[in-house]
Design a protein around this nucleic acid. Structure first.
Lengths: 333, 333
DNA sequence: TTGTAAGCGTTATCAG
DNA sequence: CTGATAACGCTTACAA
């Protein structure tokens, strides 16, 4: 390449990277040779010496999940027109897979690591943060406070439940997420707090276990309808579970929202198009993705950026309605 | 590292990679030092010399789309327990973005490239195939026949339409995908062929334009209902559009399947849980992902693997019903 | 079996 | 402003 242009390799490097002034004629000669050979510098050699790979690793619990997918989209957009490239990997909800993915990405010399959800213990995350700039979403580690973006799940659940209460519902069931999962626990607490604050009972029979997926919510709703404890509304711990519940209600001939009001959590892309469109707690996933990207970029430039706060809001659509216009009743089996 | 173990760098390299026999005592010394220092070889230096990065680039039109997400999941699973790592990028349905993503990945020296859908012209793909082992899904390029995995969209659409015809429907509308998009055109052709083969009319007013998204399908269905041309069934070009149509019908007080039967295409993860569960053309996306992974692996090992055939099947659920049990009628406005 | 030394393709340093 | 030349951290002949 340098030979074709008739200059030294250093001059080629300088023209390509604009690291120093190069005389006009030499520069043109280099550019001509560049064109002619379709030359591309070797990224590996470059990174080997600069010590930076210009990539940022992103590990999502599950790339398939529409929830994380939207965060990823925001993150990607945030990195457009930036010299940095996102490199995605799945954690597959497994500590082992997640550790593996992290090691791989560090091994590949990513300049920063972004975790979209994490099943790893805090100390392990702390250890990783010592090896590579780390940004975490959906998981709070006290020692990593400035690098963790979390949403107030408790508040979101409280909002959702209060909405139902304000509509006149008194018997509100909850389809909860997996046992021990941080978000699931927070959402349960928010639900319970809203009931308590309004002097409403919260019988344990009205809380049924789920795993954030449709199938379990479907089954759970059927059990709920069968256990003899009346209710007029359901707060599902996420939209996928709300969809499962909605199908169970449909199969039992119960109308939403006429017979049972239904609220979800997440506001997935599809939730505005369920029948009826789902009232749900909106998570600004795309914006979160962009904020994570901006934060990472700042970190990479040696700044000490801070993460913004994202309050959760309620998207009120058509799956909830005032109880005052319909008689409170136990749904028919 | 070599100093700590008291051996030469070559011996370290040989123990790590098992490239040659190393005396037991030295090997142990090396392993001890490895542990002690938490040493990790530099991937960049290694790849620089071996010329292989042990990564395979995957570019999906849209990582957010549940359709591609499932293919990706299959692909990732297919690469588990393999020295190869997938590296994902989005093409964002734009030729420019897609080209950019491809260049980046080639620049990063991926050992193979997998395209999940592509908007690029065939000749460009051909050019890329000359630079790096290429596997393409959802796009057929004659010169790259052995590397292209495509599904018979025509056949799938034919199946869906014939199913409706067999149920007694005669006036079947079609919500088509974007103009010029290969799959969309094939599905339209399959729909038209099924009608023709059964001596059914296919008035152009019953075909409305869409873009594979819910919103346009919603609007399109409203137009369909307003244009005075009666129909008893809708074949949507994909599940997302079916969902949009279903909401429009709901808003107009039309029941599915009682008043209008509805068929989708793709069988997305959520389509089994819409209300009612959607009858749709099933694409074995996860299996496809695994097949693509196996094929890529074969290619990387210098084999000449062939891609399997995936016939499309119909998942008959609850959004379609026989017209014989209900009077054929023009849906009320 | 092991060590030495020559690269891999860049950028950084330092004379000129 | 430009050209040698030394790294970067590894693998792989080639010797020993």
């Amino acid at each position: 390449m340098a030979r074709v242009a008739g200059v030294s390799v250093s001059t080629v490097s300088r023209t390509i990277n604009g690291t120093a002034f190069v005389a006009e004629d030499k520069r043109q000669a280099v550019n001509r040779a560049l064109q002619e050979l379709g030359f591309q510098p070797n990224y590996l050699a470059k990174s080997l010496i600069t010590g930076r790979s210009m990539t940022v690793g992103v590990i999502a619990e599950d790339i398939v999940s529409p929830y994380y997918a939207d965060v990823i989209r925001g993150f990607e957009h945030g990195l457009f027109d930036t010299p940095y490239q996102p490199v995605l990997q799945s954690g597959h909800w497994s500590q082992q897979r997640e550790s593996g993915a992290i090691e791989t990405l560090i091994y590949r010399k990513v300049d920063a690591l972004v975790l979209l959800g994490s099943t790893l213990p805090g100390e392990e995350l702390l250890d990783i943060a010592g090896r590579v700039p780390l940004v975490v979403f959906g998981r709070h580690v006290p020692e990593l406070d400035a690098r963790c973006l979390t949403l107030d799940q408790y508040q979101g659940a409280y909002l959702a439940t209060r909405h139902l209460i304000e509509l006149g519902h008194r018997d509100i069931a909850h389809l909860r997420g997996p046992d021990g999962q941080q978000d699931a626990e927070e959402r349960l607490r928010g639900y319970q707090a809203a009931l308590r604050d309004n002097d409403l009972p919260s019988p344990p029979e009205l809380v049924v276990q789920g795993d954030f997926l449709e199938q379990a919510a479907y089954q759970g709703t059927l059990r709920l309808l069968g256990n003899g404890c009346p209710f007029t509304a359901i707060f599902a711990a996420n939209d996928q579970m709300a969809v499962g519940a909605r199908l169970a209600l449909y199969r039992q001939g119960l109308r939403v929202p006429d017979d049972v009001s239904l609220v979800g959590f997440d506001d997935l892309p599809g939730s505005a198009f369920t029948t009826p469109p789902l009232t749900t707690v909106h998570q600004p996933t795309y914006q979160i993705g962009r904020a994570l990207a901006a934060h990472t970029l700042g970190l990479l430039q040696g700044e000490m950026p801070t993460l913004p706060d994202f309050p959760l809001t309620l998207s009120i659509r058509e799956s909830t309605r005032s109880l005052r216009r319909t008689a409170a009743r136990r749904p028919a089996l």
